[in-house]
Design a protein around this nucleic acid. Structure first.
Ligand SMILES: [Zn+2]
Ligand SMILES: [Zn+2]
Ligand SMILES: [Zn+2]
Ligand SMILES: [Zn+2]
Lengths: 125, 125
DNA sequence: AACAATTATGAAAATGGTTTTCATTCCTGT
DNA sequence: ACAGGAATGAAAACCATTTTCATAATTGTT
């Protein structure tokens, strides 16, 4: 893989807040002038996750999502009615996840935390 | 959906140790004489996960896996290598989720928490 | 420069799990 | 028995991802 190509993908990924699917990254690349094939985007992402340069998770629908590792780790509180999103701190969860995983002798721990609810304006008052 | 069908799927699921994919459950059903279509198996599983009667997780390759489960609220620590699963208690997370949601004036809070890692036997030591 | 060998790329096809469609079968109540 | 509704499943559609393979770009050698 050409470094030039890897850099383009990394830049696109870094320009997106949070996780993005391969196809979303591909779309962003085309928006910014780069014309890379979807196949190449997949190839780069696989290489980058292998090097732990990007995080990989599965969304609920099974689609894979990628995130540049430099991005600060946080979680979201999403309104099920209007989709409004708030970023939340999760100190308590971070330490809990680590502690619980180690207690079971698991290594290389990751976690997915998704909070949902009905926001103030959607709940009427 | 007919109760008879739901029961057959639940029985098949209960006869399998740990998680099983829809197709594995379908195969088990055929082995035990029941001739249910794959479509119906998917329908039953969707209904059961909606009722929280079975747990649903995504395997590393994106395939969904199901397991018959009690009704108590809990979370999972899943090995990304062999799929082995440990149920974990999450007192700290339950209260955190509630507190964080209320702090943002959200109501009717839900949460999804998945822990993954590499289990002791898979990590080689 | 010229040329061969190696690598990178991407369009199209293949893959595979899951969902939709829709015609048919099964139930239920009258 | 009969009509109306629910349940079923084979086949087709879907869609993210992977594989193929022919072409383009790069690198190295003479
Ligand atoms: Zn976290
Ligand atoms: Zn469970
Ligand atoms: Zn394991
Ligand atoms: Zn919980």
């Amino acid at each position: 893989m050409a470094r030039k190509t890897l850099d383009a993908v990394q830049l696109a990924l870094a320009s997106i807040d949070g996780f993005a699917s391969a196809q979303e990254i591909h779309a962003r690349l085309r928006e910014t002038g780069h014309s890379l094939g979807l196949t190449t985007v997949y190839r780069c992402l696989r290489s980058m996750t292998g090097d732990h340069r990007v995080d990989f998770v599965r969304r609920d629908d099974g689609e894979g999502a990628y995130r540049f590792c430099g991005t600060s780790h946080h979680h979201h509180l999403v309104c099920r009615s209007c989709g409004d999103t708030v970023e939340v701190q999760a100190e308590a969860v971070e330490s809990w996840a680590q502690t619980v995983g180690e207690a079971s002798n698991f290594r290389d721990l990751h976690h997915t935390v998704e909070l949902t609810g009905i926001c103030a304006s959607c709940s009427g008052r």
